[in-house]
């Protein structure tokens, strides 16, 4: 078993995988992990090489576009446990093309695909659960704290959907933000954040929504457990209809 280490960044991960694949080493007999800088650590440290990471992405896109999508979602999970699985998954993707995603009886493929699916599910969920509030200056703000780092694809979704209004999405867990100015998207970080004042009509519209939310449920069929399993309580913090519960 050959041990390899990388610096813990997504880019470092992809470029380390590129280096191992290029070395001709058997991926099934290689092990890849984040460098911890402890005394007892063993392994060859692979320096991050952006060009190599880019090149791997490009080659994989040719060979297996679905696998690139999976890889992208996998990185949104920000996990630092499954590097070796990812290495083997990518090796298999080069070998089999997009069919690799069907190879779920392979433990590493299954782990990578399951991680990516989970990220994809949260992205899909946030497309529904994100709530925009109108600020005093007429712009809009949505706040969230998702488990996965979904802000980029999420912002892209809303740049198509809510393109007639200027908005911000703020990820309070990662202090990152997306901004749509009506024409273009930009991303950045915000170290200091406090919510600006809301527009005068905002309260009223929120109340209308709360009323609708309450009345649309069938009273004889209250089912808080089903509601929570579909909409876990961790998302309620920013849900207009769940305020004051």
């Amino acid at each position: 078993m050959n041990h390899y280490l990388y610096d813990g960044t997504p880019e470092g991960l992809v470029s380390a995988i590129a280096a191992i694949l290029d070395s001709g080493d058997d991926p099934e007999a290689a092990h890849l992990a984040v460098r911890q800088d402890t005394l007892f650590e063993e392994g060859l440290f692979l320096r991050t090489d952006s060009a190599a990471a880019e090149a791997l992405f490009a080659r994989l896109r040719e060979r297996a576009p679905d696998a690139v999508q999976t890889l992208w979602y996998f990185t949104m999970a920000e996990t630092s446990e499954l590097e070796t699985s990812l290495l083997r998954y990518i090796a298999l993707a080069f070998e089999h093309g997009d069919r690799v995603n069907g190879y779920l009886t392979h433990g590493d493929v299954k782990a990578v695909v399951a991680t990516a699916r989970k990220a994809g599910r949260e992205l899909h969920r946030m497309k529904g659960l994100l709530r925009f509030e109108q600020l005093r200056d007429g712009t809009w703000l949505a706040r969230m704290e998702p488990d996965h780092n979904v802000i980029q694809p999420l912002a892209r979704h809303f740049s198509r959907r809510l393109r007639a209004q200027e908005w911000f999405i703020y990820d309070a867990r990662r202090h990152s933000a997306a901004h749509w100015d009506g024409h273009a998207l930009s991303f950045g970080t915000l170290e200091q954040f406090s919510r600006p004042e809301l527009s005068p009509e905002e309260q009223e519209v929120q109340q209308l929504w709360q009323t609708f939310f309450k009345t649309i449920a069938i009273p004889e069929r209250k089912n808080p457990r089903l509601q929570q399993s579909n909409m876990p309580a961790k998302y309620w913090k920013y849900l207009t209809e769940k305020q004051g519960e």
């Binding site: 899909h124 497309k127 529904g128 659960l129 939310f213 309450k214 649309i216 449920a217 069938i218 069929r221 209250k222 089912n223 808080p224 457990r225 089903l226 509601q227 579909n230 909409m231 849900l239 209809e241």
Partner: peptide, 11 residues
């Protein structure tokens, strides 16, 4: 896309 789930658990 589901945007919320009502108190009866429906989307």
């Amino acid at each position: 896309i589901c945007h919320s789930w009502a108190d009866d658990g429906r989307c």
